[in-house]
Design a protein around this nucleic acid. Structure first.
Lengths: 238, 238
DNA sequence: ACCTGAACACCGTTCAAGT
DNA sequence: ACCTGAACACCGTTCAAGT
């Protein structure tokens, strides 16, 4: 009996195989269920075997981010800056949509990985090519924030309530205490939407905010905006 | 020897005392160091004693959010909607600035606590009073996202590098690979600023994006915007 | 009835013992 | 030289035993 049981086809471990298994595990069971021990079990190895390919869990998460950011489509050629940036950001969003854990993991990193840097570099380049000063480009990138990588700045991370009845319903005493929230929830209900954050059309909301910002950027660029007007007090259009 | 040692003045535990100690501990040592066991130790009690006052750690975090949101200044009277919303959001930001952990804890909650609901209700009410339709108010709240509670949608959660030399320096090979990032970092360096996310004037960037959005909102309101134009394709100002 | 220590089922990572 | 099991220092929470 020297033959190993064929049910456990021990393929040789590699950094790539570890990362792909980690992404798959996080996609399937959620990021909070991703542990070194659980991942090792999934790969049929002892936990310590993973440390041959990643220094620690932080580096594992870095590698997972690289994998997801690598899925973003390359820039399209031949459009104005606004179309180019819009297409690129919506590609980033599409890539991240398949990995619900990605946004929070990216935010938890202390710095950009090479793939993220390359992506940011290309977006910054689009603004520069479109006639934005370095100064304005800087602030505009801040204004986009995480949206540049396709994730929305929602107040809560909660998944939308899968029960339509639970979405629409708001207890009468709550509706009385928070009339404006109730009004919003009520008006959105006939669209199958609900209170801010739950059951809304995320894609529409993302594009609404993105376009509002991009239009504002274009307006500032045309005006030759510089940050010299800092703290001039209040609105930008005074 | 019936006297207890005075060094351990065992004040009676209460929900309020637990929450205040938790906020203090998170402020001082970071949210990742906040554990039920560590908190109990800080209060001089056995871990299980905490469960008399909070059902579990999730409810502890909810209570901490309530405490921080309770610090937000009440609305000011007698300004236009834009000034009122701006003041309220900057108050929220000021409250959260003292608690670096608050933004990520709020995002991790699955739903709004009563204090958060009351705050959102008041902001929604300001838009409605300012002449915004329910429809536009809905999308405008989404566009603000977490910014409505004062936290910025930065790509990374990293604290700025405390070493000024480390902030300005970018290795030559990195500068070559990411020229646009390098240009931004270089131009910002003389201000004591750096690559996107590190060492910048956060307050300025926050207000820059906030005012850009508020100005965009006002423009849509004046135009009588409705969501009927959904997916008309591309920019909002066509 | 109240309180609490031990225990359970986990973590990420170190390290020494084994081959 | 390589591999790995046991161990360390933690978690949040349950539960039964003690007063």
């Amino acid at each position: 009996m020297t033959r190993r049981p064929e049910a456990a086809p021990r393929a040789p471990l590699s950094r790539d195989r570890v990362l792909r298994a980690a992404v798959e595990l996080a996609d399937g069971t959620g990021i909070e269920a991703l542990s070194m021990r659980r991942l090792a079990q999934e790969l049929g190895v002892v936990p310590m075997a993973l440390y041959k390919h990643v220094a620690n869990k932080e580096q594992l998460l870095d590698g997972m981010v690289e994998a997801v950011v690598g899925e973003i489509d390359p820039p399209a050629r031949g459009s104005d800056w606004q179309g180019a940036v819009r297409q690129r950001i919506l590609s980033a969003r599409a890539a991240l949509l398949g990995h619900p854990w990605a946004a929070q993991v990216i935010r938890s990193r202390t710095g950009p990985t090479p793939a993220v840097l390359a992506y940011l570099d290309s977006v910054i380049g689009m603004f520069r090519a479109g006639g934005f000063s370095v100064d304005l480009t800087h602030h505009v990138m801040h204004a986009l924030g995480g949206r540049v990588l396709g994730f929305t700045q929602e107040v809560f991370d909660a998944a939308p309530d899968p029960d339509p009845a639970g979405r629409a319903a708001m207890p009468p005493e709550a509706a009385a205490a928070y009339p404006h929230v109730a009004e919003l929830a009520g008006a959105a209900a006939h669209d199958g939407e609900s209170v801010v954050g739950g059951g809304c059309d995320d894609q529409f909301e993302f594009e609404f905010a993105l376009d509002l910002l991009l239009d504002g950027f274009e307006r500032l660029r045309r005006q030759g905006w510089t940050s010299g007007a800092r703290r001039a007090g209040g609105g930008l259009i005074a």
